Computed example of a mutant assay.
Amino acid sequence: MFRRHKPSSSEHKRDLAIHGPALPHNDTRSFFSLSQLVLSAGHLKPPPVLRHSKTTYFEVEILDAHSKKQICVVDKIPPSSTLLDVKHKFHKVCPQWSPSRIGLRLERNGSYLRDSVNIKALAASSIITLYFTDMGQQVTWTTVFLTEYTGPLLIYLLFYLRLSSIYDAKESARSLRHPVVHLACFCHCLHYTRHLLETLFVHKISEGHTPLKNMIKGCTFYWGFTSWLAYYINHPQYTPPSFGNKQVTISALVFLLCEAGNHFINVALVHQNQSGNKGSFPSPSINPFTWLFLFVSCPNYTYEIGSWMSFTVMTQTLPVGVFALLMAIQMAQWARKKHQLYLKKCATYRWRKRAMIPFIL
């Protein structure tokens, strides 16, 4: 009988070195499938390289406008920042100056820059030099308007009550008030109440600030003239208008029409600003009070002057006439500036329009 040849250990090692270890049938099929999968996948792609965008930051050097000495340097300002952002960072470095007190200019004698100016628009290089001026104590525009309008409302009522500290008590008790005195008080209170309500609920007042001294000047003007005209209208020896009730009635109706027109014009201007079309001239609507837009650029000033002129005729007093004249001069200047602005911005603007008074001014 033949014996089965048993390979020696040396022969077994030689076969492993030449042919490799023998694989079972299932393992061979799995290895073949894996090889086909790798070949079909193609070359392995390296992971994408992340490219970081380079953001250029600005450095703002702030100098004193008077001495030209450096106050501080505000660094790492993004290009999307505004001048208001720079003021806030400046305030963190120098807490003694609030953002509302900080006035910044590109040149020492130049104009002050607006808070909404983009810092990128000011940059000629990565370093921006600005000149600082302390603007003093500041107040918001809403505070200015509310203070200027609340004062005349309360001051006039004090004179209307004929306080003994203002008028002689015996003389006030003897004299009866003419109906125009009551009507004048109603019209005056209506005028300033309308201003207060429009300031709170109609006008979109800027969030900017103005120096406190400007508010003091405005209050001195409004409060002083209110005291002057209220003293004469409510005086016990006040003389009623020369043409009696007819003069009072007509002027009172004109006053009420002007007050209504002023309100509707202000509402129309607010709607124009909300629509985002600030560069165009507001067009009249079906409201007859807005038809004045066809003839003048600033009908709100037209109605305002109309109110004070009719109030002058109704009361027939010199202080009211002086106040109306000064208001007309000031508003004529504002209207001309706004009229010129419309002429520059609006290519289709009608040249036959006037600033404030139709066909005249």
Rank of each mutant, 00 (worst) to 15 (best):
M1K: 09
R4S: 09
K6E: 14
P7Q: 06
I18A: 13
H19Q: 11
H25T: 14
F32T: 14
L34K: 14
V38I: 10
G42I: 03
L44S: 13
L50E: 14
H52T: 13
E59N: 13
I62M: 07
S67P: 10
I71M: 08
D75I: 05
P78M: 08
T82Q: 06
T82M: 01
T82R: 09
L83S: 02
L83C: 04
L83A: 02
L84F: 07
V86T: 04
K87A: 03
K92Q: 01
V93N: 12
L104G: 08
R108Y: 10
R114W: 09
N118F: 12
I119D: 01
L122F: 09
I127C: 11
T129D: 07
T129I: 11
F132D: 06
F132T: 01
G136Y: 10
V139C: 11
V139H: 11
T140K: 09
E148V: 08
Y149G: 01
Y149P: 09
G151S: 02
F159W: 01
R162Q: 15
R162W: 12
S164Y: 02
I166R: 01
S172T: 15
R174D: 08
L176N: 06
H178E: 08
V180K: 00
H182P: 01
C187Y: 00
C189L: 06
Y192T: 12
Y192Q: 06
L196P: 05
F201W: 04
S206Y: 04
E207S: 14
H209P: 03
P211S: 05
K213Y: 03
N214T: 08
I216F: 05
K217G: 09
T220R: 02
T220M: 00
G224S: 06
T226M: 01
A230V: 09
H235W: 03
P240V: 11
F243I: 12
V248F: 01
T249Y: 13
A252G: 14
A252L: 10
F255Y: 10
L257T: 03
E259I: 11
A260K: 00
V270H: 00
H271T: 11
K278N: 15
P282I: 11
P284F: 01
P288T: 10
W291D: 04
W291H: 06
L294I: 14
V296E: 01
V296T: 12
P299Y: 04
Y301K: 07
Y303Q: 04
F311G: 01
V313Y: 05
T315S: 15
L318K: 02
L318Q: 11
A324T: 14
L325E: 05
L326N: 15
M327N: 11
M327P: 00
Q330S: 13
R336D: 07
K337E: 11
Q340L: 13
L343D: 06
L343E: 10
K345W: 14
C346W: 06
C346D: 15
W351L: 13
W351S: 13
R354M: 10
I360K: 04
